[in-house]
């Protein structure tokens, strides 16, 4: 079963908080899915190519000309708006 340390590490990478009382349940459910997907180890795929995407198309190009758009709809959705700016917390700080 996946360790508590590992679960906490993954949660941190995902920017998610796991409460202490949720750890055991998360470990169990996570481990049972991991056990199931380990099934793929049965297959020898050394000579198989990856399917990264199914796209039949080619890249789309266009002229580098901008389009005028009204940004009010986007600005209205900002949780913390100051004029036409988005207000955020400190982004420069000392890592503890």
């Amino acid at each position: 079963m996946i360790s508590e340390e590992e679960i906490r590490r993954i949660a941190k990478l995902s920017y998610l908080e796991i409460k202490d009382e949720e750890i055991d349940e998360m470990r169990e459910k996570f481990s049972s899915i991991l056990e199931y997907v380990k099934k793929l180890q049965e297959l020898d795929v050394s000579s198989v190519l990856e399917t990264a995407n199914l796209s039949q198309s080619e890249n789309v190009f266009r002229e580098d000309i901008g389009e005028e758009r009204d940004s009010e709809d986007l600005l209205k959705a900002l949780p913390r708006r100051k004029d036409n700016y988005l207000e955020v917390k400190k982004i420069l700080y000392n890592e503890d």
């Binding site: 793929l40 180890q41 297959l43 198989v48 190519l49 990856e50």
Partner: peptide, 11 residues
């Protein structure tokens, strides 16, 4: 896991 799954996807 991930790279392997992409290959199984081809199969």
């Amino acid at each position: 896991y991930y790279k392997k799954a992409l290959k199984v996807r081809t199969l």
